[in-house]
Amino acid sequence: AQDYDDLQPVQWPVLADRAAGSGADAYGGTERLFADGRFYTPSGKAQFIAVSPRGPRYTPDGVFPLTLNTGRVRDHWHSLTRTGKSPRLSQHTVEPFVAIHPMDARRFQLENGALAQVETGWGRMIARVTVTNDQRPGDIFVPFHWTDQFAAKGRADALVAPATDPVSGQPESKATPARVTPFAPQWHGFLLSSAPVPGSLKQVDYWVQANGAAFSRYELAGLREPQDWEGWARDLMATDVRDEWISYCDSARKQYRFARIAGERLVACLFVSPDHHLPARAWLSGLFSQPVLPAEARRDLLAGRSISGQDDIGPTVCSCFGVGQFAIEKAIRERDLTSAGEVGDCLQAGTNCGSCVPEINALIKSAHRNSDNQQAAENVA
C-alpha cells in the first residue's frame, strides 16, 4: 500500500487498461479526453445536434420590470452546508444581497446598504442592496446560497420561475421577471454572541446568521419595536445575574446598545438603530477571541469602535489571510500603493488563491479617484 501523501495527481477518468509506467501514469489517468479521435457513440465519431434557440419563457413587464439572475458568490458553495460552517469564509459575504445598477437603484428608490424586498410572480425574499456598475441596467443579481437555516426570507430559489429544460430539467434560473422595492423596518441591528441564542430571535422579521471565530453573528431588522428594549435584550442574550451588564439607551434617537460580560470575557453584544447605519463589526468581533477583555476595550465597547486608536481592519476582503477593507485602504493611502501586487507585498492580501484581487483593484481605483478629487478641490480653493 502506498502512503496517501506519496500519491501523485491523477486526471480523471482513470482507466485500468492505461495503467503503466510510474508516477501519475501508473494509475491510468487520462490527460486529455478523446485524444485518440474516438467518442462515446456507436460510430466513434462526434455528433453535433442542431437546436433552435428560444428566449426565456417569461419576460419582464410593467409589474415585474427587471430580470433576475441567480448564482454563487466568491467564498460560498451551494447551500452553506459546508462553507457556512467556516468562520473565515462566512465573513466576506455575510448576507443575501441584491446587486442592482445605480440607474435602477434611483428609479426604484433603493439605497446602497439598505434592505429591499425582491419579488417575482412565484415568491419573495429580503436582501441587502448592493448598488454597482457591474450590473447591467434592467438586470439584478441575487446569490442562491442562503436557506431557512441561515436566514429569514433569504431563499433565492423561492423566486425562480418554474420553467425548466425539457431534457435536463435545468431550471431557467437566470431570467425571471422581478421587481425590487425598499423594505422599511422600524429598526435595524446586529447581535454578536458566543452563547446559544434562543429561538425567539428568529421571530424577528429579518435575520441572517453567520458563523464567526468563537461567536455567531446575526444581522437583524424588525417591523415592530419591542416595548421594553432592555428586557428583550436581556432575554435574547440569556443574561445571568452574575454577569456584568452594560447598556446605553437613547429612546429619543432610538439608539440602543447592550453588552454582556461573564467573568472577564465578552459573551454578547447587541446594537440597534432606526436605520442601517451601524458600527462596523470587525473590531467588536475580534474581542470574542480574547480570554480577558482589555480595560480600554471595555471602555470603548458600546461605541462599537476603538477610541484608543486600535485599528479596525473593516469588512473582510482577503479570506485567506483575514485582511479587511479598512486595512487595505489605509495601506494604499499611506504607502501610495498602485497595484494588487504591491498590496500583496505589504499585507499578503491576494497572494494565495487570488479571488480577492478584483476587489483589491477596485479599492485602489476608488482610493486614487478620491485622492484626485480632493487634489482638484484644493486647487480650486
Rank of each mutant, 00 (worst) to 15 (best):
T70S: 15
F108I: 05
G354S: 02
L89R: 14
S319C: 06
A340Y: 10
Q325L: 14
L287Y: 07
P185D: 05
A184N: 08
T338C: 03
P56S: 11
G113S: 10
I140Y: 03
I332V: 15
P185L: 05
T83A: 06
E264Y: 13
G29A: 05
D345S: 12
F48T: 13
G123I: 08
E378N: 04
R299I: 01
G62V: 07
D148A: 15
T132A: 08
A99G: 11
L68M: 14
D336T: 13
S86W: 11
A19C: 14
L236H: 09
P143Q: 04
L110A: 04
A213P: 00
L191W: 08
W229H: 02
R82M: 09
G154C: 10
T181C: 05
G212Q: 01
K153A: 14
Q310K: 01
V357R: 15
V118T: 11
V118Q: 08
P274D: 04
A221I: 08
S200L: 08
T132F: 14
R74P: 00
S193I: 06
L284A: 03
L236P: 08
I126Q: 12
A377L: 13
D148S: 13
K254N: 09
A151V: 06
A184C: 03
A376P: 00
L266M: 10
T316Q: 10
A238V: 10
L159S: 07
L302H: 10
P171Q: 07
S306W: 02
V180A: 03
W187Y: 05
W187A: 01
N361K: 15
H145Q: 11
I364W: 12
I49G: 00
T147V: 08
D311Y: 01
S247A: 09
Q91H: 12
F34V: 01
V142R: 01
W187R: 13
D312C: 11
P143V: 14
V272D: 02
Q255T: 15
G212E: 00
P291W: 11
A367R: 07
L66T: 03
A151W: 09
V180E: 09
H92W: 02
V267W: 00
Q149E: 11
T164R: 07
Y218R: 04
R257T: 06
K365N: 06
S173K: 07
R369P: 01
V267Y: 00
H277S: 04
G44P: 12
R38I: 05
G55R: 05
G341W: 00
G350D: 12
W283M: 04
A213T: 09
G212P: 02
P60D: 06
F34G: 01
A377P: 02
R32G: 03
G138F: 07
P358M: 13
R253L: 10
Q170P: 00
P42A: 12
E334N: 11
R38T: 15
E172D: 09
K174N: 09
G71M: 11
F48I: 13
N370Y: 09
G199P: 03
R179V: 13
Q109T: 11
L80D: 14
A163Q: 04
A295I: 13
S289H: 01
Q310Y: 04
A178W: 10
P358C: 13
P198Y: 06
T83I: 08
V142K: 01
S200P: 01
I126W: 08
F190Q: 05
P166M: 10
L302R: 08
R335F: 15
T93D: 12
S173P: 00
A158V: 07
Y256F: 13
F190T: 03
A19T: 14
Q135M: 14
